[in-house]
Amino acid sequence: MIAKIRIFLALGFVAAGSLVLVPLQILSMKTGWWPETFILKIWHRLIIRALGMRIHVKGALSDKRPLLVASNHISWTDIMVLGSMVDVKFIARADMEGWPLIGMLSKLQRTVFIERERKRSSGDQANEIASRMAKGDAMVLFAEGSTGDGNIVLPFKSTLFGAASMAISEGAAEQVFIQPVAIAYTRLHGVPLGRRHRPLAAWIGDEDLMPHLKVLLAEGALDVEVHFGEPIAFSKGSNRKETSKLMESQVRAMMQAALADPRPSR
C-alpha cells in the first residue's frame, strides 16, 4: 500500500512539474532567451527527486570543445542522472523517440536519434552528431550500444565513434575531445548493492518502461555515482578502434572502483 501511494505521489509530482516546464522549454527553443539545457536540468532533477535517487560525482565535465562523452549505459535513468548535473545533449536509440513523455522531452532537448541496425542512415546520423559537436554541444554517447546489468561494462562499439572521425574529415574541427564517464548504481536505502541486486536499477533490452519505472518508484533511495575521466584528443591520425578500447578500459576501471568502494549515502 505504501509503495502504491509513493508511486502515485511521485507520478503526480512529475506530471505537475512537466505541465510548467514543457511550455517553458518550447519557449526557450523558439526564442533563445536562456540556454536550452537550463529548463531541462530542472526537469531531470525533478525526475531524480521523484525516483528518490542520490547522485555522487567524482571529477567534472570537460570544458574542452568539440566534446564527445563516452559513457557506459545501465538504464534510461542514466539520461536523467547526467542531464540533471551538466549541460549535455544525448545520442539515443531511435525507438525512444516514441516513448510517452520521455520521447517528447528528448525531442525538446534536441536528442539525436540513431537507428543502429540501418547502415544506410548511419552516415547522416554521424554527420548530425559531428555538426552538433562543432557548434559547441557536448554530446553523450552510450558507447556499448546497449544497456548492461550494472555489474559489468559491455564492449564499446568503435563504429559509434564515427561522428568524431567525420567532424574532422569534414573540416568541422581539427580535433575532437573524447571524455570517458562511468555510471554505477551503488546503494539501496544506504546498503551497498551486491552483484545479485544491482540489476534492480538496470533497464535491459526490450523491457517495458512502465513496469521498470514502477519498480524504481516503489523502491526509491538509490545511490548512483558518476565518475568523469580525463578527456583525450582525437585527431586525423587517431585510430578509432584503439580509442574505443581505451575509453572502454577507462570506463570499466572507474565503474569497478565505484562498485568496490561506494561512497556513503547522504
Rank of each mutant, 00 (worst) to 15 (best):
F8I: 15
L217W: 08
Q250S: 04
L188R: 14
G12S: 04
D124S: 14
G205C: 04
K107R: 11
F113T: 01
S62H: 08
A182Y: 05
Q175D: 13
L24P: 12
G98A: 12
R196Y: 13
G150H: 03
A94P: 06
S265L: 12
S265M: 05
S71Q: 01
L200E: 08
A50G: 06
R65T: 11
P100H: 06
S62C: 05
M80P: 10
G136Y: 15
W34G: 11
W76R: 01
S18P: 05
A94L: 13
L141A: 00
R118G: 00
M85C: 10
N72F: 13
H56G: 07
M104Y: 14
A10Q: 06
A143L: 01
I168W: 00
Q179K: 03
G32D: 00
L61M: 01
I183R: 10
G205V: 03
A173I: 02
S28H: 11
I2Y: 14
S165A: 14
I42D: 08
A202E: 09
N239D: 15
H212W: 04
V226F: 07
T186G: 00
E225G: 04
D137T: 04
G145I: 06
E219T: 15
E117S: 14
I114E: 01
E97I: 13
Y185I: 00
V69P: 00
G17Q: 02
H212E: 07
A16V: 15
M1G: 13
L68H: 03
P264T: 03
K119G: 10
R120G: 13
F8R: 10
R263K: 12
Q256P: 08
S235I: 04
K41I: 10
L188H: 14
M85Q: 14
S71N: 06
L9M: 12
I5T: 08
I91K: 00
G83M: 00
I47Q: 05
A16E: 05
S249P: 11
